[in-house]
Design a protein around this nucleic acid. Structure first.
Length: 666
RNA sequence: GCUGCUGUAGCUCAGUGGUAGAGCGUACCCUUGGUAAGGGUAAGGCCGCGAGUUCAAUCCUCGCCAGCAGCACCA
């Protein structure tokens, strides 16, 4: 090291000082690369190294370190390296595809959570059958171990190069890069790609712990008016063990799918004749009622009043609210005419189109109508108007998904009518109510976003500023972690979005809190202020669960079907060992039933093993098992889901403690 | 809505150019068994829908519908 350093020093005459993670510093000659630094420390480090972090930024090992910096060498077995492995793997995928399918254009191939994808433009989209062949080609490329070489290209030359090769998408990407951006190219052997980098030294370091997962269509630049590309998803890890454990994790997650559990636990079903609308079975509806009851108590105790508003309302009404113009394509429209029963005649006349009704897609305009009945004083505000409102939205077929995205859903909706100076306080009240509920419901991983002004919006900038500030201040004051989602606000105001993930990691919006200056204006709502004049109230749209359908779906997945006692559709099964215990079992069953518990009696002519298995599979949280012994001693054998053993208890005590345990948290 | 894949018994899935099979579940019978599947018998199918090719289609081709994955959308 000394030799290298001193000889280079002698040549160039200047040095740089590098600080290592342990705080030590060393001087190196100018022009030194990351790889040379690694080699200067040890051969084994140089071999294990895949990248260099310069002042916290990942860089290629081959790049020259220009000036004094704190650095750390990233080894392949470190957690950070997995990002490099995945991105390099995407490049290898792209090369493999272009080798196997000449004429395919490459576009973009970024990392995503747990993996990467690459979008290709090809007349004939890839299918699942193509993947093993592509994987095999990738292995060859990795085996070959070509070095990744970074080159800086001139912008026009780069555009000319890719255009010349027929890579129109790459050319477009370069054309759209800001003029200040350096155009960098990474070569791996003969193949090259436009890329910002960094990359590992060679393709060999990608390793073999990767797998191509699925193919799908994806629009160029995420724009449905543009071409549809064919996307290949892959995953890559540092070791085979990591890959295997990821694949097992996916398999396990699939078992929690609410659509599967919904069928197995006999909670609900969906069918073609009512696609996107749920048939709730008795057991599923028990969950619904428990959850609804819980929220109703919460709202009642938090100053809300509950209302119920019409499903069908005249088109005029939706024109006034603005929904007709903006969201008509998502509404169910019904003619207000008696349909004809005459054979061969149209069901409705042409005149029917002059008078249309729509199923409500939202509850808010209806709530404004209630607000507008009579005259409201500033003293009445805030008015917190709640409704378990059933809404219909004509969702695109491709969007429908189990309970998560349906066409008929019920929101635990409410609208708060208040003065602007009350927004901050209402936001705080809502946030604390929200988190109290989610704690009770077993959710701690909630992704809270503050969605700010979109390009297309109503209201003045000043109004938006005050609105965003009120929402952000409430978050800060409650010390809640959040991220900003710029431009994601509604056209009428900023909002909080509460996202939760399902079993396989997809994120769904559940709760929401939205500020709205627009609707009170459009529907002419007002109150009389202290000054005796008319004023516009601010409207806050808010939901804790969001759609009950979606929330129950998420909850099933979150608990893997093993709902806590207060939500479980069947809280206890009384099961007999022999028919000698039948009459005692009836007595036990009725004691629990009379106490209001959701209980079932199993006196079937089956062995206890069989009954225990069946009810365990059905995820019943508690079983009271009774045989001859229990009947004689007035006891029950309690068996809990997931436990191997049992406790024996006196009947009155067992009943009392189960009742206590089944109480809702609020 | 777009791209791809899939559609066979209530559920999970085999299968074949000559009108179908398993396991689980269901019904009935035997069994009264002490904590995750006791035994037997039986019933159960417009092989998603419509057209075409063929002597013959669940199987091949086309169209439609639905489901799944992803994309787009989500007031």
């Amino acid at each position: 090291m000394q030799d290298l350093a001193s000889s280079a020093l002698a040549a160039s005459g200047s040095v740089i000082t590098l600080t290592f993670p342990d705080g030590n510093t060393r001087t190196y000659p100018q022009g030194i690369t990351g790889m040379m630094v690694a080699e200067s420390i040890s051969k084994s480090l140089a071999k294990a190294a895949v990248a260099l972090k310069v002042n916290g930024q990942m860089r290629d090992l081959s790049r020259v370190i220009e000036e004094d910096a704190s650095i750390s060498i990233v080894k392949r077995d470190e957690a950070e390296a997995v990002e490099l492995i995945r991105h390099d793997c995407a490049h290898v995928l792209a090369e493999a595809v272009q080798r196997l399918y000449p004429g395919t254009q490459v576009t973009i191939g970024p990392n995503i959570e747990n993996g990467f994808f690459y979008d290709f433009a090809r007349n004939e989209p890839f299918t699942l059958e193509d993947l093993p062949k592509i994987e095999a080609e990738m292995r060859k490329i990795i085996e070959r171990g070509a070095a990744f070489e970074r080159e800086v290209w001139d912008r026009d030359q780069a555009i000319a190069y890719f255009t010349g090769k027929g890579e129109m998408y790459k050319a477009e990407l370069i054309r759209d890069l800001p003029g200040t951006e350096t155009i960098t190219i990474y070569k791996q052997g003969e193949w090259l790609d436009l890329c910002r980098g960094p990359h590992m030294p060679t393709t060999k370091q990608v390793g073999m712990a990767f797998k191509l997962m699925k193919v799908a269509g994806a629009y160029w630049r995420g724009d449905s008016s543009k071409a549809m590309l064919t996307r290949i998803y892959g995953t890559a890890w540092r070791t085979q063990e990591e890959l295997d454990s990821y694949l097992t994790q996916i398999e396990e997650a699939e078992k929690r799918d609410h659509r599967k559990l919904g069928r197995e636990m006999d909670l609900f079903h969906l069918q073609d004749e009512a696609q996107g609308s749920v048939f709730w079975h008795p057991k599923g509806y028990k969950i619904w009622l428990s959850l609804e009851g819980y929220i109703r108590r919460r709202l009642n105790d938090s100053g809300y009043v509950e209302v119920k508003t019409p499903q069908l309302m005249d088109k005029k009404f939706w024109e006034a609210s603005g929904h007709w113009q903006k969201y008509r394509d998502g509404m169910f429209i019904v003619p207000d005419e008696i349909p004809s029963l005459e054979e061969g005649k149209p069901i409705v006349s042409n005149k029917a189109f002059d008078h249309l009704l729509a199923l409500k897609p939202m509850n808010c305009p209806a709530h404004v109508q209630i607000f507008k009945q009579g005259i409201k004083s500033y003293r009445d505000l805030p008015i917190r108007m709640a409704e378990f409102g059933c809404c219909h939205r004509n969702e695109p077929h491709g969007a429908l998904h189990g309970l998560m995205r349906v066409r008929q859903f019920t929101q635990d909706d409410a609208h708060i009518f208040c003065r602007e100076d009350q927004v901050f306080e209402e936001a705080k009240l809502f946030l604390s109510l929200f988190f109290d509920c989610y704690k009770d419901l077993g959710f701690d991983k909630i992704d809270l976003k503050l969605a700010t002004r979109p390009a297309n919006r109503v209201g003045t900038d000043d109004q938006w500023y005050r609105a965003e500030k009120a929402l952000e201040d409430a978050l800060k004051q409650l010390d809640l972690p959040y991220t900003i989602a710029p431009g994601d606000g509604a056209f009428y105001g900023p909002k909080y979005e509460f996202h939760i993930r399902d079993a396989i990691g997809r994120s769904w919006t559940c709760g929401t809190f939205q500020l709205d200056y627009n609707l009170p204006e459009r529907l002419d709502a007002h109150y009389i202020g202290e000054d005796g004049g008319r004023h516009r109230p601010v409207m806050l749209h808010r939901a804790i669960l969001g759609s009950l359908e979606r929330f129950i779906g998420i909850m099933i997945e979150n608990y893997a079907g093993k709902l806590p006692l207060w939500l479980a559709p069947v809280q206890c099964v009384v099961a007999t060992i022999t028919s000698d215990a039948d009459s005692y079992a009836h007595e036990v069953y009725h004691k629990l039933k009379d106490a209001g518990l959701r209980v079932e009696l199993d006196v079937r002519n089956e062995k206890i093993n069989y009954k225990v298995r069946e009810h365990s599979v059905a995820k019943v949280p508690v079983m009271f098992v009774v045989g001859k012994r229990e009947a004689e001693e007035e006891k029950v054998a309690i068996r809990r889901l997931g436990s191997q053993d049992q406790q024996f208890e006196e009947l009155p005590q067992a009943v009392a403690s189960l009742i206590a345990e089944c109480q809702p948290p609020y």
